[in-house]
Structures are given as structure tokens and as C-alpha cells.
Design a protein around this nucleic acid. Structure first.
Lengths: 254, 254
DNA sequence: GTAATAGTGTCTCTGAGACATTATATA
DNA sequence: TATATAATGTCTCAGAGACACTATTAC
């Protein structure tokens, strides 16, 4: 530990003299794509929490919640902080997705954003804090992103900065991971029916699945409970299932 | 475009008054994991370019090449710049991997690093610039990373910062992507033999493959040429193959 | 010739996909 | 009873894995 560098300095001496202020530096934010899913009548959809900006730039446009990374918190911690501020939850599944570093992506200043994806069951969501936050249904059809709720439908130009691409990438990532990881269960409550589970898979995969085969393929991951769902409408009521304690698939590669 | 915010400012007026200097900001680097692969006698191995640090902190330890992201370049552009400085190449396959944001990861200052993976054929590599750069063979066995070359063998403590984890993640990512993307061909020259191709797959997948089945499965992606390899040692000389122009698999999800 | 590696052909058995059938609720 | 949805059982065919065999070089 007493090694000296080219100018004869130890590490301690070097660090004391080190001036990090010589160069200009970018700001860094953690932006969180908070997803949930709710059964709504016939068809299910993913939902994402967006915030309407009350300030320039992109005033009145809708943005993914985010916050600047402080000097005394890791980027991951900043992401958790933002998530808790917006949903009142902690311990939510959070996964880093991508870092957005183009020069002109925010006209205010040089801002680099690390995007995260958060997945949480609808039941655990507290009503979005503040009037400027709203849940939007989200789907992709053809090459375009669709975002809508009871109040309005957004077009591509209604999203701030490069956030449309952020959302697109998150949906793509989910689609790629859903078959070999456990992420669906992060969107579901502890007890769920097989039809629910299947609809969630279908939404994320953006394709219909064959019911009987789906049951067969999921058999290793879930187990039956004695409870039956109260029948909603006509037809045989579904039985509740839960995850098998040991039926585990990996979640991240890190 | 003439919308005014809560204080009656237009976007132009707001931006003129915006002061990005109020908060302290972290430094951001782009760190490049430059991989190549070379046939070396019996067994092939991936190789990675490392640089021995001549300065505190982590003096004399080996680090992944990196550089600070300038204010007038995107993070991707910074990555390309670093890559070209170190290999003299441009147009190399480059993929963003992960962003490392822990507070104490660099004792000099708060530094957030965006890691990239670069893949290039051995033939296109120019000799590493400077005496401080060296190629290391790299593999994982059990839970540990192995790095070695003709001169020395590195242990976990010989790597700077969190760079061992960076390399580990890159190997994991490669392993996960190799079967459904084109990344192997980024490591190979234009013409290659089937045994070569198979060994590269085996190195990345960290498992032996069955020769005849491997040929069958790759048939859609490559095509035979008339050229035969000069026989090296005993045995039937291998035939050269090249990629089919249309035999394409996707490379990234972005 | 033998040894060694390159390359082809074929068999089998798992498992994904499709469909038929039974079960249980409402009306 | 009819209808709608849940849940189970079975058939088939493509494809992964394993193996046997042929081809071409050095020695």
C-alpha cells in the first residue's frame, strides 16, 4: 500500500491532491418505468405510470418519473428512492435497462439517464401521488407505441424527451425475458387464477397462447390451492394458484 | 410553442435562466471490454484487452480501457472514441452492457461507468498501443474469473475497481446471446472453417458441442466456399465457409 | 497401410403444438 | 336444460441429441 506513482506520491497523497473539478460533468438521472397490470373486462393490458411535466422543457408532455442521482447515493439507490416517492412502495422488483447518453436529449443541460424497469402488482399500488401523475395502458401495435386511459389517448408527440423509446425498449426486454425468468409473478398478486396468469403472459408476449399447453408448461412453477375464485359471470369458476416455493427461474444475469 | 410556465416564462426564457451548476455532479466514463478470440493450438479462448494502471488509485492493477464522456459527445460516441484509441479500428461491433453506479467504486471521485462490449476478429487487431496494454486470455471456471497470458496469470485482486464483475457480466451476456444472435461472426474473419466456428461457440457457451449436430444447426447461416484450408498437422483439411448474405439473426433489441 | 480430423447420413425420443373431452358454474 | 368458461387427456410431428459411417490428409 506504500507504492508511489511517477511523481513519488502514495495513494493517500495522490487522492488529497486530486481535483475532480477540472472538467465539466454531465448530470445523471435515474428514470423508472413503473409497470403494473390489471384485469380490465375482456382484455388485460400493461399499465405504466407517467407524469405530466409542469415545467419547461417539454411542458405539458408526459414523462417517465425520474430524479437526479445524488453524490452520496448509488444509481440503484436513486432509482429506489424515486420509485418509493412515486408509489409509496419499497422492495419492488427493479431492473436496470439501458443508459441514454445522447448529447441533445434534454435541452436544459447535458443529462445522462439510466432507465430502470419496476414491476409491481396492481393491488399494492397506492393512488398516484399528485394530480400530475396518471396510469396509462400501454401496448405496441405495428411499429408504434399506444398509450391511453379513461381520460385521454396519447400520441408519439405527447411524450417528453426520448421516453417513448425508453418505454419501447422496456416492453421489448420484458417480452424477451418473460419465458425464461420469473418476472410475470412480480406483476401478479400472491394468489391468481390460471386464466389471469395466461392473460398476463399473452400481454407481455403480444400473442395468444394455447390454454391447455400453457397449463402444462407452467405446471412446474405453480401449485393449486383449495380456494376457488368467486364466479364472475357465466362459466366454471377458476381455481386459485400460487407459486411453488421451489419452482424458481432466474431473474437477472448480474 | 409559446406556452408559459408557472412563472410566466416561455421555454426559451426558461432555458436562458436555467443554471445547471447548482448541484454537484458525478463524472461519467465509458469503459470498453474489448474481446477477440484466437485459435491457439488445442483449445481456443476469448481474449480481452487490459491496461495496467500507472497511477493511483489501483496503481499497477489491470483495468478495462475507458475514458471520460465529454460534454459534446454522446456516451456511445465516447465508447467508440476509446475503442479507436486502443485498437485503431472503427466500425467494430459495440454493445452497451450495464451502468455501474456505486458510490465508492472509485476513490478519486464519484464516477459512474457505462460498460460496453466490443467484439473484433483477431486479424483486424493492431498491436496494442503502448507497453501498458496487454491481451489476456479469459475464462470462468466455477465461480471465479481466470485471466492469463504468456507473461503472467492474474488473480482477482489484480484487477482494478469493479472491473472483474464487469468482465464476468460480459461473459454472461455473450453466453446468453450467442445462440440467438450473430455475435460470433463479429469475432471471426470473413472466411472460417467449421471447426473454428464450433470452437468459438464452445468457448462462449462454456460447453462442448456435438460436431454433426452443430453443422446441421448452422446450415442456414453459413455457406461453403471452394477454398480448402491448408492442412495443419494430421487429418483431413477443413473447408472454408462464409456467412450467408441473407442468413441473418438479430443483434440487439434496441 | 494407420491415425487423425473433416464431413454426411440416419435413428430415436423428447417436447411443442393442436385438438378432443370432461367438469362446473350461470341462466 | 343450454351456454360459457375451466381443466384434463391424448395424438402427432418437428427438432435436438446421439451415433454410425464416409472422406481426405499426414505419416
Amino acid at each position: 500500500m506504500e507504492e508511489r506513482n511517477g511523481r513519488g506520491l502514495t495513494e493517500r497523497e495522490f487522492l488529497e491532491r486530486y481535483d475532480p473539478g477540472k472538467y465539466e460533468r454531465p448530470s445523471v438521472t435515474a428514470d423508472i418505468l413503473i409497470f403494473t397490470a390489471k384485469e380490465c373486462g375482456e382484455d388485460s393490458h400493461l399499465q405504466i405510470l407517467l407524469i405530466q411535466r409542469k415545467e419547461h422543457p417539454c411542458m405539458n408532455r408526459w414523462a417517465v418519473p425520474g430524479g437526479f442521482v445524488g453524490m452520496k447515493e448509488s444509481v440503484d439507490e436513486a432509482a429506489e428512492r424515486v420509485l418509493e416517492e412515486k408509489t409509496g412502495q419499497s422492495g419492488v422488483y427493479l431492473e436496470q435497462l439501458y443508459t441514454w447518453g445522447d448529447v441533445g436529449r434534454d435541452p436544459r443541460a447535458r443529462i445522462i439517464s439510466v432507465s430502470y424497469m419496476a414491476l409491481t402488482p396492481w393491488e399494492k399500488i397506492r393512488p398516484a401521488a399528485g394530480m400530475d401523475a396518471a396510469w396509462y395502458f400501454v401496448s405496441r401495435s405495428g411499429g408504434t407505441l399506444r398509450l391511453w386511459n379513461e381520460d385521454r389517448e396519447l400520441s408519439g408527440q405527447d411524450l417528453a424527451f426520448d421516453h417513448a423509446r425508453m418505454i419501447w425498449l422496456a416492453l421489448e426486454r420484458m417480452k424477451n425475458k418473460v419465458l425464461y425468468t420469473d418476472i410475470v409473478f412480480r406483476l401478479l398478486p400472491d394468489k391468481f387464477t390460471f386464466p389471469e396468469l395466461q392473460r398476463f403472459y399473452e400481454v407481455i408476449l403480444e400473442e395468444k397462447l394455447h390454454g391447455p399447453n400453457f397449463r402444462r408448461d407452467m405446471a412446474a412453477l405453480v401449485e393449486m390451492t383449495d380456494e376457488k375464485c368467486k364466479s364472475q359471470g357465466v362459466g366454471k369458476p377458476a381455481r386459485y394458484y400460487r407459486r411453488k416455493p421451489d419452482g424458481v427461474r432466474p431473474e437477472t444475469e448480474l
